[in-house]
Design a protein around this nucleic acid. Structure first.
Lengths: 221, 221, 221, 221
DNA sequence: TATGAATGAGATTTCATTCAT
DNA sequence: GATGAATGAAATCTCATTCAT
């Protein structure tokens, strides 16, 4: 009785069906008719909710990405240290992509290549997530956690590129191989790579000289 | 022979036209008719040389990738040190992608997402390049240049993922932004990340003791 | 009663909206949804009042044409002379079409071309108007105002055809040009064309002959 | 072997089929599929020759109208007197419309109502025919054949409007009634309506008076 | 070998219309 | 009586692909 947008249910049902079909066959090989079948509605109904096939594609990430971003934004202030923040974000991507394989397939194989998507609303959430990651990196540089002579954009590209690359291969091989648990190893390498090297420490050496002729002992590690 | 050459020409002409058109508009938005126009042949002629639109797509990387791989393979033995080898390979990708924007656009935006491409001949060259990179990483681990507790596949993913990510963005923004010169910074970070930390060094300290009781002064920081 | 009125209102509202939309975009390019929007009701409501899109179209002229015809019929007996009657009728068309541009657009561009309209109720009023015009012409022939060797149907076609043609062009040019004030010039031409020519008059010539013989001069060539 | 435009035959065949189908059912109720069937080609073939359904519609009058106009233009200089020229033109319309009923149906019921047609190439021929008619009327005014106080545009509207109106009705009644042979009666009425009234003539009366008592003869006509 | 011409097979999209509430 | 929601049924148009010449 007078839902705001026709029926929320049907909207979601269609989005879900589209996510599945697009994710499996790719945008161009998917047909509205197949999505309609998957959603249990008629083709015409899809056009009641979405203006075009492309609109439907672009409407998908909105919801799911926004949720992830909200979560990130809510969590960020409570995490101490840039490295920990970055870890939370990367882990967030990992979880999101791993637990929503259709979604990651869609984003990585279809949406990211669509120039028009950059103008669509759903892209904003994606951009925001990337911005949060960049902030964390800069924060680490300022706080001294990371070196100051690194390019934060490059660091972000390393992180996102690696994540995407690994998921990408996973999808290309149709997810038949185990997805490697790469988050910690990646961060370990990166942290070494961009972390401050240990300051040269000052050693205090006490030497007591016995009364008669002495032999030097080597320093202990 | 003359005929042979003529055919060879036409083959190449079509490949070039296809590279350009696919690279500009993407596989699905390109039409055979447009490629035919660009190549100056009829559509039917394209089907004399290639069995289908997809075949034509898959035929493109063969040539160009093979050249790049040949170059790599020829060069590899002459380069000392895993880090240097890796640098050569990464730089090779960088040059290849930068100087052949249609090619990189095609590979990154179209081919990589096509599962069938993995069965096509042209994919072999891509795989070989990746294999060479992996070998170099492993070599570095064995030689002690790199730590032994890293996952070489992850390292390769970091390298390839970063390269792809950066070129990807460059294409998405229609190459209007300057492509960052990321090779050295990336390798610098990675080398620190995976390189062996300096061995604790042994210092030889000679102390001569004056005849009368003396007190050592601590080194000044 | 209140209900009755409410319905009457809605009926009229829909007719008005349909007149406007059909008149502007033409029958085929107009959509029920647009008419519903213009009328401020739902599409389904339109179907409560009219059985189909075509029914709605055919229902439009009924009201307005009937009014015009009633007016004509009421006025006719009080007008002396066929020419004056015809003038009243033509002027009636002129006023009707000019002051109801949506209506004339609809009638001239849509309704008149629809064979089915000839079976619809609204067509009766149109036919009646044409019949009245024909009667006036015949009356003029009988009364001697007009020649007897003319075809009254042709005369009617001249009148209606001219009116329609001029309004037609006016609409095609989107009413941006001034509508010519053609009624009197048209009737002037037609009246001369079909009016009785002046009877050959008999002249009375009185000739008085002078006493001495005279000779006339022959006509010069 | 290398016709200029694919095959002239097929082009004509499609035009003819389209003329028939559009003429019978009207533009909107006709389907490409039906035209294809009537032409004995596939739907796709139609789109090889014409860019869209509308293009096909607009392409129809080009040929046939142009022929008629060429004929008119060729004939005009050899006809003496404006009235005769006008008669030739009106008769030309009459023949054209009568002998090509699909064509006249199409023009009167579909094309004339299409604002876009006014921008199409085929419309030029229609305009030219109208221009020739107008010229003839003006010529008659200048030569003194017609009165000078008439509006030539109105006269043209009378002619075209009447022609269209009569053919219009003929088509609406599905050509089951005999088409009246209206050309001469129409021109007779119009010529009287716009023609110069006879100048008051001067009669020369010769009277010869016989020497002895004479009787007057009545004047001769 | 090269191609002009033709088409099969669908895909997206639109809308008038229906029906349960 | 009014309508939100859903859809059946088509229609236009596109293109990869084929084939006779």
């Amino acid at each position: 009785m007078g839902n705001d947008f026709k029926s929320r249910d049907k909207f979601t049902t269609i989005i879900d069906a589209a996510l599945k079909v697009f994710g499996e066959k790719g945008y161009y090989n998917a047909t509205i008719s197949e999505i309609a079948r998957a959603a249990g509605v008629s083709e015409a109904t899809i056009y009641e909710y979405f203006g075009s096939k492309e609109d439907l594609l672009f409407a998908i990430p909105g919801e799911i990405t926004r949720q992830a971003v909200d979560f990130l934004e809510g969590m960020a202030p409570f995490i101490r240290g840039a490295a920990n923040k970055i870890r939370a974000i990367v882990y967030g991507y990992y979880r999101l992509y791993k637990e929503n394989p259709y979604y990651s397939s869609l984003v990585l194989l279809n949406l990211k290549h669509n120039r028009k998507f950059m103008d669509a609303e759903g892209y904003q959430a994606v951009k925001k997530a990337a911005a949060i990651l960049l902030e964390a990196i800069k924060e680490g540089m300022e706080s001294g956690e990371f070196r100051k002579d690194i390019d934060p954009y490059l660091v972000r590209s390393i992180l996102l590129g690696t994540i995407e690359h690994i998921f990408f291969r996973w999808h290309l091989k149709e997810r038949r191989e185990e997805l490697p648990d790469f988050v910690d190893p990646l961060l370990e390498i990166l942290t070494r790579g961009i972390g401050k090297p240990p300051e040269p420490r000052t050693y205090q050496i006490n030497i007591s000289i016995p009364s008669e002729g002495a032999s030097g002992t080597p320093p202990a590690g």
